[in-house]
Design a protein around this nucleic acid. Structure first.
Lengths: 165, 165
DNA sequence: GCGAGATGCTTCAAGCTTGCATTGTTCCGG
DNA sequence: CCGGAACAATGCAAGCTTGAAGCATCTCGC
């Protein structure tokens, strides 16, 4: 039953190589799957945060984007500053502020020192609505499942993940 | 210099109450600020994940949403299943699949056992493009800043945050 | 001064996403 | 069997988001 001296040796080696490749592929598959799952969790939480905002916003006659803008308007801002705080493009800020203005919640004034820029100021109605919104948002948190030390840990992990561009 | 027996006592108490309220407000403010920062980080990472996908997708003539759909199409799926994997509404899946179909990457077949449903199947072109996409996505990760144990920690935190609905 | 490039805002086209209504099909209790 | 509830997919309206193009204004180096 001992095989001829040359051929099987060859075959054994080939099988070993094949084996290794299969195992490597499977390991990579596993890594990819885990990565996708993790990304899914991140997106899921982001979506929940958005839903939470929208939920409280609709009760006040606002969309989520409008509420996000209103939330940032604690003092006079330029369009660009608002876009920065909302983490979106300036053109998007234009779109959202258009609606807020049409609803009489915010006013576009000429900027005192830069004639290119606009100064966004809340109207009395806007100020009142903003306070109601902040009260609602402070009342319950989309991160209620996490304790203080867990939030800190999460923050550090997220910062590290975002650090490498 | 000793104050009259009644009035200052009153005043001291009032000041103490006022003081406490101010401190409480400030503490709540701080909590709200920290929460917003954390939400910002979550959204930031989600956005980076999306950008990463878009980046590799555009090189293949796909949008991010199309790439996300293609990525999930490893075997025959119904519209509903695809929407589930993409974490979006079925009507959105319809929209995205419309484009994929128009580009000849996917085919809508009648479902073998349920005449309400459709079965999505990749065309040869779709299969090839999907493989190229997966190769690109496996090559670099949007979570490159995190090591294995950190990913595990992040996963656990996110799961816990999402657990409480 | 002044002209070139940078900056602030807006508009537009294209695509994404959601919620709701509609249509066709299946499933189940009577 | 059959009528109604549940379900799959789609059409549609409204809103969100981005990227590129365009106009007004500012700023800096000469």
């Amino acid at each position: 039953m001992t095989p001829p001296p040359d051929v099987p040796d060859e075959r054994v080696r080939a099988e070993r190589v094949q084996d290794e490749r299969v195992r490597a592929e499977r390991a990579q598959d596993e890594r990819v799957r885990a990565e996708r799952a993790l990304c899914g969790l991140v997106n899921g939480l982001a979506q929940r945060i958005g839903d939470h905002l929208r939920e409280h916003a609709t009760g006040l006659g606002l969309t989520a984007a409008q509420a996000a803008a209103l939330r940032e308007l604690n003092g006079p801002l330029t369009m660009r500053e608002l876009a920065g705080r909302m983490c979106c493009e300036p053109s998007n800020a234009t779109f959202v502020v258009d609606r807020l203005e049409r609803q009489g919640l915010v006013e576009r004034r000429p900027h005192p020192t830069d004639r290119r820029a606009r100064q966004l100021v809340l109207t009395p109605a806007g100020t009142g609505l903003r306070e109601r919104l902040l009260a609602l948002l402070a009342a319950d948190s989309p991160l209620a499942g996490l304790g203080p030390e867990q939030r800190l840990a999460l923050q550090e992990l997220l910062e590290q993940a975002l650090a490498r561009p």
